[in-house]
């Protein structure tokens, strides 16, 4: 049995993931993430419902994941389980996603290394395949993006971004 601890970089703990001219990636920790599914899920939250490329303007919003599923970010505390009255399935996912903020003029250039995500191609949902993994990608302001991956993928995303910048950073 091999010991692969050297083969895989130890996970970084610094929330400032990357910083280069015109490009910043930071890890942020939302107060609460709640997964809500149901026939009426997209109408179940009082928070603004965010698809692509809707702009997130505050700390509280709901990302549209599917036809019948949203992810509340910074929403109210909800009792997990099946809410029979509202017809909603509710799970807390606060610790389930790693959330990154990407800011700067060159961010779109970096995202083009991960897949196609064009603001002029709208989509009701924010889920997509980027950098080879399932992510949630949404817009924050003019040149800012939010990028979420399941926690176990955080290190992969971080190292993917780092690899692109270290190899081709000057040309992105």
């Amino acid at each position: 049995m091999r010991d692969d601890r050297l083969k895989w970089d130890a996970p970084a703990s610094d929330p400032k993931v990357l910083a280069q001219d015109g490009l910043h990636v930071t890890r942020v920790r939302p107060t609460r993430l709640t997964l809500i599914s149901g026939v009426q899920a997209r109408r179940a939250s009082a928070l603004p419902l965010i698809g692509w490329p809707d702009q997130v303007t505050s700390e509280q919003f709901a990302l549209c994941l599917r036809r019948d599923r949203i992810l509340e970010v910074g929403g109210p505390d909800r009792l997990p389980g099946w809410d029979a009255e509202a017809g909603l399935a509710i799970s807390e996912m606060t610790d389930g996603y790693a959330m990154f903020h990407l800011d700067g003029d060159r961010t779109l250039g970096l995202l083009k290394r991960g897949g196609v995500a064009r603001p002029d191609q709208p989509s009701p949902s924010v889920v997509r395949l980027m950098f080879g993994m399932d992510v949630l990608l949404y817009c924050r302001g003019a040149s800012g993006f939010g990028l979420c991956v399941p926690g176990p993928r955080a290190e992969t995303l971080r190292s993917a971004l780092r690899a692109h910048l270290s190899q081709h950073g000057a040309e992105i």
């Binding site: 895989w8 970089d9 996970p11 176990p152 992969t156 190292s159 993917a160 690899a163």
Partner: peptide, 21 residues
């Protein structure tokens, strides 16, 4: 491209990996 090394079939990582290390 960057589909190499740790990015080629990347692994999922444990929250407690630093503690295990």
């Amino acid at each position: 491209g960057t589909n190499r090394g740790q990015q080629f079939h990347p692994l999922k990582r444990l929250a407690l990996e630093p503690q295990h290390r």
